[in-house]
């Protein structure tokens, strides 16, 4: 065996850690994509309509600062400003549901901070895709719909959004795939997702190549499968 491979292969315990990390990566990604998309559509519409021009400030702040800094900001800086009672509650485990040995806990503060910060970041980029989708719908569509007697929100909901969605959905899928990769930064605040687990395996076994190779492979598979699954479904609705 070449020297860079070190001694042996990953054991079942280490592979188990990596799979646990993968499950958390998938959970966090799904949660972020869901909230990020909802918020992103709302912000995209708001920005495109231009009713609240001050929205540009937070929107640009989110898009023009590194994501890692944002994650650290929400967890360490804002987390430190919370009232004492809130801090204690957020940092104590709470069981939401229990059935014999199975239990579902309230998510840890690390997970919540990761979800929140990644959602805002995803929102900022998804809003841009939604806005450009809305902008691409010809002005005449608005006017024609209004001439038919539709109220402005009805025009948006039934005429404009469906057309904007056609344009924005593939870029939005790209943002979703980006989100999966961005979850790796949350290991800085102790979220035990896939990247964190690969470092843990490396530190414990010194099988550096194997640890990061398996993690890389799992990321590639996750993103490829997500794309393979989502893209035909998004395109089929043409």
């Amino acid at each position: 065996m070449p020297a860079w491979l070190g001694q042996g292969l990953l054991g079942s315990e280490q592979l188990g850690w990596l799979l646990q990390g993968l499950v958390l990566t998938i959970t966090l990604s799904a949660a972020v994509i869901l909230t990020g998309l909802i918020l992103g559509v709302l912000l995209g519409i708001a920005r495109q309509q231009g009713h609240w021009p001050w929205l540009a400030l937070p929107h640009n702040a989110l898009r023009n600062t590194p994501l890692l800094v944002q994650v650290l900001f929400w967890y360490f800086a804002v987390g430190g400003m919370l009232p004492e009672a809130a801090k204690i509650w957020l940092n104590t485990p709470h069981v939401l549901w229990q059935w014999q040995d199975l239990s579902l806990g309230w998510p840890s503060f690390e997970f919540l901070a990761a979800w929140w910060s990644l959602s805002l970041y995803a929102m900022a980029y998804m809003a841009e895709d939604v806005r450009s989708g809305l902008n691409a719908v010809p002005r005449g569509q608005w006017e024609a719909a209004q001439a038919h007697g539709l109220r402005p929100w009805q025009v948006l909901r039934w005429i404009i959004l469906p057309q904007a969605w056609q344009i924005a959905r593939i870029p939005l899928l790209g943002q979703g795939l980006n989100t999966i990769k961005n979850t790796s930064l949350t290991m800085a605040i102790g979220v035990m997702e896939l990247s964190y687990r690969s470092r843990q395996v490396d530190a414990q076994t010194l099988l550096t190549f194997q640890a990061f190779a398996v993690a890389t492979l799992l990321y590639v598979l996750l993103n490829l499968l997500t794309q393979r699954w989502a893209q035909p479904r998004l395109e089929a609705k043409q």
Binding site: Y75, F76, G79, G80, E84, K87, I88, N91, P93, S108, F109, E110, A188, I189, G190, M192, Y196, Q200
Partner: peptide
Amino acid sequence: PVVAYDDTPLAFTALRNGN
């Protein structure tokens, strides 16, 4: 429950924040 941070000063910040 163990929470791992990038270095000792960050871990100390988390302690001071109550995380």
